[in-house]
Nucleic acid binder design. Structure first.
Length: 511
RNA sequence: GGUCCGUUCGUCUAGUCAGGUCAGGACGCCAGGUUUUCAUCCUGGUAACACGGGUUCGAAUCCCGUACGGACUACCA
């Protein structure tokens, strides 16, 4: 076995925050690399200077880190195949573009944007289904194939803006195998002479991507399926460079779709639909507009990762909850589905609820304390642990804990009208006086004792439970929610409970 | 318009390559149980092979067509 070491790259453009589709691509790349004991490389593809957004690169690194994805090499990490930011590799690309010109597989093109536009308009008017710069149309354009060599050298020495285009064959089938989608055949007449090198001196994605993947010894290209149609051009580049033997395997992943209908998920959908599409909160540096993030919404990274990995992939078993380590063990690229998936916020919440329940009470306390501090609540740790024990099973997010438990910290100041109407009767105050007596007389003060004593009292008086306990809950909590009243009383202490019951008796009026 | 791709419960999906279990699981939803309440939890239920042809004893599975959806079609990635 002389299998090459697996090396994959995640190669986002720093044009803004990474959305969850990009995160999923990163996760799949990472899992695949780890599964095979390989390297995961972070490369920043910033060849479009116009779209560069300040802070985006940092955002990408932070997002990966939040999920526990640490690149083996790349921007912010280093490595022997660097630099890993394409703008720092500018010189490399020019050399390769020129090499292609020398070998006759690329050419200079001097057409202005206007001329290109006219060409497309003309083809459109002729009802030509293909409106591209290709083997047919290039013969009437301004390029080093139609101009004689002295005209070309003159233009070059005049600094006439030019691009370098890939010279596609006129009549050739290009085939490649995609690990996810299967075999593809494209006919060269359907492709265009892609620009490899732009007039601003930067390469396009197509060139930079192929050159870097080759130089960085990438073995598997796992990327979004929006790249499928340009893959044949990339295949040709490998061929023309003479790198076909080390061409990586391609795996194009289906896209994440809008939850409510049509099209691929976009950055706008989040705010429109009321859920985050970004892992972390993002503030647009130009407009100061804030987009919400999963982290800030209260999702745990492990829940978010678990949820995301199941979008378009499954292990083929009925298991749905996985740790990252487990995923590394069982991940397999050929279990990636072919069709796009919408995501379901309800399921994301379910995962978060599940992961929250797996956490220790101590851990949950630690996460909850900042919220309490913000509310100005002072609490002793052992009491807090008891409170968390009591309410955590109801919580999906840490932020649910306060609405679920506030009455255990602060006495109710108002009482739910609906509950008053339904549960507060003429004899309620009198019945509660009886409960005060029971509470006050107890020597051991735990939930079990409270329950048996209060129940005994109710039975002796020949009352029914609902009659007494609902009113009791109202005075303690202010509403008709929460765990067992006996648990509540025992946490509240006798003194506080009696105080609340008295206050309720005084201030609640029959409706 | 052209090229390429896809289509199983409302959603994520198993099953398709090697045709033959009342098409399985999860989320959601509904019902019942537990509970003094609200949740949680437990049990059960609802619900899908896009459509039309063909091949076959037999098709979700293979073939063709149609519809619908998606991606690409920039000196953006």
């Amino acid at each position: 076995m002389s299998e090459k070491k697996v090396r994959v790259r995640f190669a986002p453009s720093p044009t803004g925050p990474l959305h969850i589709g990009g995160m999923r691509t990163a996760i799949f790349n990472y899992l695949f690399a780890k599964k095979h004991g390989g390297d995961f490389i972070l490369r920043i593809e910033d060849t479009d200077q116009n779209r560069y957004v300040e802070g985006a690169e940092d955002y990408i690194i932070k997002s990966l880190k939040w999920l526990g994805i640490e690149p083996n090499e790349g921007v912010g990490k280093g490595g022997e195949f660097g630099p890993y930011r394409q703008s720092d590799r500018k010189d490399i690309y020019q050399k390769y573009a020129e090499q292609l010109i020398e070998s006759g597989h690329a050419y200079y093109a001097f057409d202005t944007p206007t001329e290109l536009e006219e060409m497309r308009e003309r083809l459109k008017a002729e009802k030509n289904p293909i409106q591209q710069y290709n083997a047919v149309t290039r013969v009437v354009m301004n390029n080093s194939l139609t101009l004689n060599s002295s005209e070309v050298s003159k233009k070059l020495s005049d600094n006439t803006p030019y691009v370098i285009r890939l010279k596609l064959p006129e009549d050739e089938n290009i085939t490649f195998k995609d690990v996810v989608l299967g075999n593809f055949t494209f006919h060269s007449s359907q492709l265009d002479d892609k620009i490899l090198f732009k007039s601003d001196g930067m390469p396009t994605y197509h060139l930079a991507n192929v050159v870097d993947d080759y130089l960085m010894k990438i073995t598997h290209v796992i990327r979004g399926s929006e790249w499928t149609n340009s893959t044949p051009s990339h295949v040709l580049l490998y061929r023309y460079f003479g790198w076909e033997d080390s061409m990586p395997a391609f795996a194009h992943m289906p896209l994440l779709l809008k939850p409510d209908g049509k099209g691929k998920l976009s950055k706008r959908d989040g705010d429109r639909l009321g859920f985050p599409v970004f892992p972390l909160e993002w503030t647009n540096p130009e407009t100061q507009e804030v987009s919400s993030g999963y982290r800030e919404a209260g999702y745990f990274p492990e829940a978010f990762l678990n949820f995301l990995v199941l979008l378009g992939w499954n292990p083929g078993t009925e298991q749905e909850v996985f740790s990252k380590e487990e995923l590394v063990q069982i991940f397999s690229i050929d279990r990636i589905g072919k069709s796009g998936s919408k995501f379901d916020q309800e399921k994301a919440k379910w995962f978060n609820h599940y992961y929250l329940q797996q956490k220790s009470t101590q851990e949950i306390c630690t996460l909850f304390i900042p919220i309490l501090e913000e509310k100005g609540i002072d609490i002793n740790p052992s009491n807090l642990a008891n409170i968390i024990e009591l309410v955590k099973e109801r919580a999906t997010f840490i932020s649910d804990l306060w609405p679920l438990s506030h009455y255990l910290f602060v006495a109710p100041t108002e009482y739910d009208d609906k509950v008053i109407k339904k549960r507060w009767k003429e004899d309620t105050p009198q019945l509660l006086e009886g409960i005060i007596d029971v509470i006050s007389s107890l020597k051991t003060f735990d939930a079990a004792t409270l329950e048996s004593e209060i129940k005994m009292h109710i039975e002796m008086k020949e009352l029914n439970m609902g009659q007494v306990l609902n009113g009791l809950r109202l005075t303690l909590v202010g509403s008709a929610q929460g765990p067992s009243v006996f648990e509540i009383i025992s946490l509240l202490t006798a003194e506080e409970s009696v105080k609340r019951i008295r206050r309720g008796i005084q201030s609640i009026k029959i409706i």
